[in-house]
Amino acid sequence: MSKILIIAEHDGTSLNISTAKCVSCAQAIGGEIDIAVLGNGVDAVAAETAALDSVNKVIAVNAEHLAAPLAVNWASEVLALSADYSHLLGPSTTFGRDLMPRIAALCGVNQVSDIMEVDGAYAFKRPVYAGNAIVRVEPASDSKVVATVRTASWKAAGSGGNASVDPVNASRSPAAHTRYVGLSSEGGERPDLQSAVKVVSGGRALASEENFELIYQLADKIGAGVGASRAAVDAGYCPNDMQVGQTGKIISPDLYMAFGISGAIQHVTGIKDAGTIVAVNKDSEAPIFEVADIGLVADLFNVIPELEGLLG
């Protein structure tokens, strides 16, 4: 039977939903599920974790040097806990993508990245080429599986559980060569592109940085994050970090509204997982209409003011 250890993601005060999604993936693998909560003063987070469905036990490791999730310190601590487990899972967020490969290397195995489906305890499906192909990956069944879980593919497990919490002392000393300085949140009031429920995006047709203001205004009106095509970024209408696409951000909002975006392959790759895609473009032949759920062939410079008017 599989013995699965999930590494919890949290900010010190509450559990990130990505952990509950890892639990769903672990349920699909089947077996005993433990969760490690590392940090400093994590009792509340550990209690929250213990309430997740089908968790056997929570291992709480408190130490000052684990307060920030520095991969170097966390990886050696997880390694110390890992001996009895067949599977080590973390979310495919920046947290898990930073940490899990370091653990995998210490275990001497390649990592299975971005599990989207479980075919068996040692067989998984994952996306490659930015989701343009799906592959089956099979690590050796006599080796430890270290994997990240693609959070967009899994529902969060419920929280009707009541697992025990085992406090464990940190067994490794901190690495002196890496020092945490701090975290700053960006973007002010506007939702973060990666986690926004709605995203309004502009393309080359905006034609200038000034015109791009239209996109910001509409986004603020409906509480959306702001994205852009590579063409708009290359033309200097908006900053680099707003680029949506294969070489930019791959996002999955409930609503994605593309204004004046032609729909180059590399852009479409970044929005494939969106719930509803709206495309507004003057050119009825634009490839964006092939993936749009709702298309409107019209000039964005007319549509955006009309939209604002209709939305009051």
């Binding site: 900010d11 967020t93 890496t178 975290l183 949140s185 973060d192 986690s195």
Partner: peptide, 9 residues
């Protein structure tokens, strides 16, 4: 990082 910008040394 998902939560913003993290600085490390």
């Amino acid at each position: 990082v998902d939560a913003g910008l993290e600085t490390i040394e």
